[in-house]
Each structure stands twice: as structure tokens, then as C-alpha cells.
Nucleic acid binder design. Structure first.
Lengths: 267, 267
DNA sequence: ACGAAACTCAGTATACCGTTCGGAGTTAAC
DNA sequence: GTTAACTCCGAACGGTATACTGAGTTTCGT
């Protein structure tokens, strides 16, 4: 039941694949590939050549295989993307295992989330797939909810709190994204070798500020900033719009707000 | 100088177009189109058939024109997207004009942002273009900064506060997006008729929760939720993961956090 | 008034993309 | 041993963005 390659809707097929409900027969020649190798190759392509370059053809080429062969493993591109997204969630520290109280854990979660997004910017660029939860994502979410054990938050509040932090991190990641068509700047090791260094993140941030600088230069030649007094004031004071405000600022505000709620609930 | 169609980098071309630095001669036949009509048509296509269907060919077809003709107006797809994004910002209420104190204004800004994103989900799906600020966006940003006039916030803090709210709204919009490939559910009137009703937003939310329901149904058949105790608890309590937590929850937390900062700064 | 420069526009070509089809070869089940 | 199921892949279909070429049109400079 629920054969991933013949199920009716794409959604159903993606879910069946993600959750490993594979009901294929045992006849025929042995398969030359595994789903994991395909997903790994796809992630490598996205990482190296940018999310826009992630095509089935490239993945097949990297695996030394014809394009059509991939279709015996994966029903289509959308499903592959769903698998990629769940795959990057595999190596992460489970949120409730971070040390400290709920606020420390939540801070660590957000920073980890942020690091992950800076390291794999393509996760924000893929299709609809992030709506399809895989086992790794559910495990992560389950763990994240446990952060609030002991606080007086209601269950929906816990869910919302996690979702809010997630939305903030992803939203900021997209506002700060390096050109989605260009390859990743660092072009570090494969995604499988999860333990990348801080240096990689640093390098990404650096190249981004270079993009930003170029844009601001061109912008300065075209725009009369006297038309935007408040903005000019902010710029003169050293802030850079759409570019430089630190991730931590928003996170601290968000956590302060959640803390107020926790205090109210525990009172 | 800075001719939009021959400038070196795509970024420069996009900026030159956005800021209206058009340096074309006056000879030759009269142009059959205007930039505005092209942008309007592109927005209509994105609105009606979904962001994935927004192609130069479709836009050209809708205008009764050959594809190549568009390239005499716009250097390429990326630049058209930048123009589309700036165009949707045109009808919006300027943030500092909302009534009330800074918190009321900021709340109104966020709700307006949120409505806009629900109405035009494709703005979250376009390419790198949102990094290219146009005149309408800058005007909006300038106005948004004025919200914090009189609070003790520093200029970078003001910028960061705006960016944080924006990141949250956009991030949540993406987490909640209806299938990016399908056309918009409402398929309402053209984008030019900016004053859409609340009903449209309501309808979009409805169709989304239908998607969600289907997914949860399939998921329930595949997943043993005993493996995810905290999640099961939250589900049993009525919360729906990845779907239903209200926009307002996160916004209130965020505003509470910003308010704390404002109080600290004014003390 | 008129030639020529400048411009618009469209058809065609190239190089990708995802996906489907059909056939050739291989293996396990009966 | 036969057959059905399976893997793999070349080729093709319809789609995309973009580049190039050429034909036709308008307006400037004279």
C-alpha cells in the first residue's frame, strides 16, 4: 500500500518516500544506486553551484547515470527536494539537549537554525517541499516543544513560539540571502560532513557584505537621499539598510517577548 | 549615463530601470508598450496562474506581442521581477501615517504587511530581486523608520526593529504559503485594483487549511505518533503543527520585546 | 524633401529544464 | 526454462530564458 512511485497525489508520493514506505518487488537486476546517494548528490550540487543549478540532469551526471534512471528512485523533482530538506535536518543537535533553561535552549536553537541556513542557503529557495514534514523534521519539532516543559505555556503557545522563532530566522535568512543564482561562496566540503567550522559562516557573511557594498555604491549614484530624510539619518548614524543589522537584535527582542509571556503564565 | 539596457552588471541595470534613468533616443517608431503596462501584465500573470507560471512568454502573449519585443523594454527576467516587487509597494499606506503611538503604528504595519503577502503570495517566490530597493520600497522604509521618532531608540536599532518585523512576517508567510506552483485560489481582480476585501484574504486562508487537512490525513496514516510524545501532546491539545498558530501570537511577542527595549531606552 | 541613422519588433536558434516513452538487458519467481 | 518484473537509458516532447539576425518603420539632419 501507498507505493511511492504510483501513489495518486504528489504529496502522498513525497510522504511515502520520506517515511520509507517502499513497496517494490525483488525481481530484476540489483539497483545501482540508493536514495541516500541521490539525495546526497543533489545536496552537493545545490551547495556547489547554487540552488538554481540543482537539476535532475546535473544530479544524474554527478552520479554517472542517465537522467531517466533517477525516475526509478524518485517520482520527480518535488519529491527529491522534500528528501533534501529532511536530509539536512539529520545532523542537528536536538533542541532540548542544549544546556540551560528554556531561554538558553531557545537561543541555542535559533543560533543553530541560523548557522544552518547560512551554511545551506538553498533550503530557503526550494519549491513547496518544506510543507512536507519528514521524520527528521518531526523529531526536531518534538524536541523543540520539550524546551518549554515546565513553563506554564499552553500547548498551542509552545507550537506558536517555535514557529515564530523559525519564521524570524528563515525570514531574515531570505532578506540576507546571497544571490540565489550564484553558487555558494564558501563551496566547502560536502553536506554530509556536517561539522563545518565557524569560518565558513564568517566567509559567507563577508561575501554578502561585499554584494551589499556594491549595491549601495550604485544606489548612491542614482538616488537623491534628501528625499528620504529618516533613512538618511539612519544611514549617517552607521546603520546599513537591508544589510547589516545583526541577527541577534531581533532574536533578543523576540525572546524578551516570549519571556514576558512565560512569566505571566507561571505567575 | 547608466543606460539600463546596456549597463554592465544585472544589478546596475535593474537599479537604473527602477529609478527611471532611461536614456533612449527619440528616433524610430513609437513604442507600442510602456514599462508600466508590462509590469502590470506580469503581475496579473503571477496573480492568476501562480508565480511559477510567470514567464516572459506568457507576459508577451498577454500583451499580444512577441517575446523578443519585451527585451527592448527590460533587459531580462530578473529586472522585471525587481520592477514587479517595487510596483506592489506602490499602493500601500505609509507606516508612519497609521494612527496611534509607535506600537499601534508598528502593529498596523505588520498587519498590512501580512495582508499584502497573503494577497500577493508570489512576492515571496521571486528571485534575488528583493535585494534591489526601488523608490517605493525606500519611501516605505523611510516612513517606517519615522514610527520610532520620539522613542529613545538608536538609528541602527530602528532599522533592525523594522527589519525584524519584516523578517517575521515574510518568514511566516513562507511557512504558510499555499502551493507555490498552483495559481492563487481567489484569482481576484487585477493587482492594480489595490483595494481588495478582507474576504479574499479569508478565502486564501480557508483553501490553505484544506491543504493542511489533507496533508495531516496522509501523515496520520504513515506516522506512528507515539514516537513523538511532545508533538502528540500538542496535537491532542488542539494545536496543528506547521499550519495553524495565529500570526498574532508571534507578533505580540515581538512587539512586547521591542516595547521593553523602548522602555529601557526612554528611562 | 530625402537619405540614412536609429529604433521596434518578430522569427529563429541555442541551451537548458522536467518528464515520458519505449526498448534492451537482467534477474528472480514460478 | 519460461516469463514477468525490474533497471537503466537514449531519444523525444514541450517548456523556459536569452542571443542574434533581419526586415520594416519613423524621425533627424541636411
Amino acid at each position: 500500500m501507498t507505493d511511492p512511485l504510483t501513489a495518486s497525489t504528489p504529496l502522498e508520493r513525497a510522504l511515502a518516500l520520506l517515511w520509507g514506505r517502499d513497496t517494490r518487488g525483488s525481481r530484476g537486476p540489483a539497483r545501482g544506486l540508493t536514495l541516500d546517494r541521490i539525495v546526497e548528490a543533489a545536496i552537493e550540487v545545490a551547495e556547489r553551484e547554487g540552488p538554481a543549478a540543482m537539476s535532475l540532469r546535473r544530479v544524474a551526471a554527478r552520479l554517472g547515470v542517465g537522467v531517466a534512471s533517477l525516475y526509478t528512485y524518485v517520482p520527480g523533482r518535488a519529491e527529491l527536494e522534500a528528501l533534501m530538506l529532511d536530509a539536512v535536518a539529520i545532523g542537528r543537535t536536538l533542541p532540548h539537549e542544549w544546556p540551560g533553561d528554556w531561554r538558553a535552549k531557545l537561543t541555542a536553537l535559533a543560533h543553530d537554525d541560523w548557522r544552518e541556513i547560512r551554511r545551506h542557503p538553498w533550503v530557503l529557495e526550494l519549491g513547496t517541499a518544506e510543507q512536507v514534514p519528514g521524520p527528521n523534521m518531526l523529531r526536531w519539532l518534538d524536541s523543540a516543544l520539550r524546551i518549554f516543559d515546565g513553563t506554564g505555556l499552553s500547548e498551542p503557545e509552545k507550537l506558536s513560539a517555535i514557529e515564530t522563532v523559525d519564521a524570524y530566522v528563515r525570514g531574515l535568512g531570505r532578506l540576507r540571502r546571497p544571490g540565489a543564482d550564484r553558487p555558494a561562496s564558501g563551496a566547502g566540503p560536502t553536506a554530509a560532513s556536517g561539522t563545518a567550522t565557524e569560518a565558513a559562516t564568517e566567509a559567507a557573511a563577508e561575501s554578502e557584505s561585499e554584494d551589499t557594498r556594491e549595491r549601495d555604491q550604485v544606489l548612491g549614484r542614482l538616488v537623491d537621499f534628501d528625499d528620504y530624510p529618516a533613512l538618511s539619518r539612519a544611514l549617517a548614524a552607521g546603520g546599513t539598510p537591508y544589510s547589516g543589522a545583526p541577527f541577534e537584535f531581533g532574536l533578543e527582542r523576540l525572546l524578551d517577548g516570549i519571556e514576558q509571556l512565560v512569566l505571566r503564565r507561571s505567575a
